[in-house]
Design a protein around this nucleic acid. Structure first.
Lengths: 255, 255
DNA sequence: CGTTGGGTTGAGCTTGTTCAACCACCGTGG
DNA sequence: CCACGGTGGTTGAACAAGCTCAACCCAACG
């Protein structure tokens, strides 16, 4: 298997676990996200069956997992790390539609044989990459799995709709505050319940997610710091006053 | 069955078809949207079974089918007319998330026992209103139906995501142009293939959908008229130059 | 030690908002 | 029959939020 040179903009083949190695043991046993999403209802037998439809991959920050022009290939369950899914406009503008965290599935949506959007690793990312046809067949064959797919879609549709209201109605500073609240509530749910937030994405990426310029993001953050609501460190935000932050995010558009 | 007085803001009970009357004949036979969405795979027996989980209703323009504060009640398949689904912010701002047309299902999304959003009739609307629990049971019992639910969700998720890019990245005039293109391509698909578009919603509603002020909508439309790209009539838009309109909507965010 | 990528900050400008006046249309009631 | 108020649309002028462009800083890295 020859390794291709990385095309210009930092796309490249990820490191794959070899078939032979896979046969040895089922890594799912130790998988940090085995209890999440489609894997949640699976016993060991079915887990192995699903695992055999895919392979594990590791991606470096900035690598593209899938592009909107590519024919729809595998779907990706994120084992660790963060993936940004975005829509690019021909003139260079882009809208980051959502950030996907460990346990979530991305690259699922397709449109006449192509990925609908683009997925990019915001950090080092580990994925289980399932063959699309086999995954769909697996889901069709198992009612509980397809129920998980359905509820995941419904949940995503809701959270994306909510973010639409952010883009359509909120001011720049409200958007930034909302973003921090969302990050914070996400961390509370799985990570340390501390109010030190790691910011794994750059200002430009936050800007593309919030539909504003990166300078505006920076200014809003500075203003929040000025007002002693947050403190800024190295790729870190410390929330000093969660209550006031929530106020500033205006309405309840969290999650 | 007593009819309640309409609460302040034009909510009211719709006119329902009585049970006795329903028993007579299955109106689905003549239903204009019997081939769409969840009804599409049904033979007459299953169609009757589904129909019996709900009832037909008619709503006047401006009536609220469901509110975000209401406990999640029925889900609505639209037989005719247009419904706007929106998210309201406490301070009066609102984002219209999507317009639902004949054949589509709305009021489906729920969050801890309540409707996620709000649905309002933009025109006179006929619905089949299915009991939620019974509908879900019906879907669970029939693989082909739940497959339709899944694919509808995936499709909606995609189109909502696409609209996010509109809100996050496009200028006001691009948004308006995009909106007209979307309307136009929708009409092409089912109605007369003519380029006279009926505008069933007010400027304020278009504004809430596009995340701009109604004055801005009006100005953009006037400018398009000035440039001989469209013509404006009574609640009607005539597309004079579809190609240039598509250009102005910037990138391909249609549908 | 120079380069590169990301972040901050300022000054001027543009887009879209805000506020207001005005008009056309329509249904209602004196 | 016309006066009236209510709704929805148009247009203008002043204003402000956010964008653009640019300079500058800092840390990482070859």
């Amino acid at each position: 298997m020859s390794v291709l040179k990385s095309p210009p903009d930092s796309v490249g083949r990820p490191h794959s676990v070899e078939r032979a190695e896979r046969a040895k043991a089922l890594p799912c046993i130790e998988c940090p996200v085995k209890a999440q999403n489609v894997c949640q209802p699976l016993d060991e037998k079915r887990q192995r069956e699903l695992y055999d439809t895919g392979k594990q991959q590791t991606w470096d920050r900035g690598q593209i997992l899938f592009r909107a022009v590519d024919p729809a290939g595998p779907i990706f369950k994120i084992v660790s790390g963060i993936v940004a899914v975005s829509k690019r406009l021909p003139d260079g503008r882009r809208q980051i539609l959502d950030f996907f965290f460990a346990g979530e599935i991305c690259g699922y949506l397709e449109r006449d044989g192509h990925y609908s959007f683009e997925g990019e690793a915001m950090t080092r990312v580990k994925t289980c990459s399932f063959n699309r046809a086999k995954f769909n067949a697996f889901a069709t064959a198992h009612d509980d799995v397809s129920e998980v797919v359905r509820s995941t879609l419904a949940w995503k549709l809701e959270s994306v709709s909510r973010h639409m209201a952010v883009l359509g109605q909120l001011t720049a500073s409200e958007r930034v505050a909302t973003f921090l609240c969302r990050l914070s509530s996400h961390c509370e749910k799985q990570d340390v319940p501390i109010r030190k937030l790691a910011l794994p994405m750059t200002g430009a990426e936050i800007a593309d997610y919030l539909g504003i310029r990166l300078e505006t993001v920076s200014r809003s953050l500075s203003e929040l710091k000025q007002r002693k609501i947050i403190d800024l460190g190295e790729d870190i935000v410390v929330v000093l006053d969660p209550a006031r932050l929530a106020e500033l995010s205006g309405p309840d558009l969290l999650r």
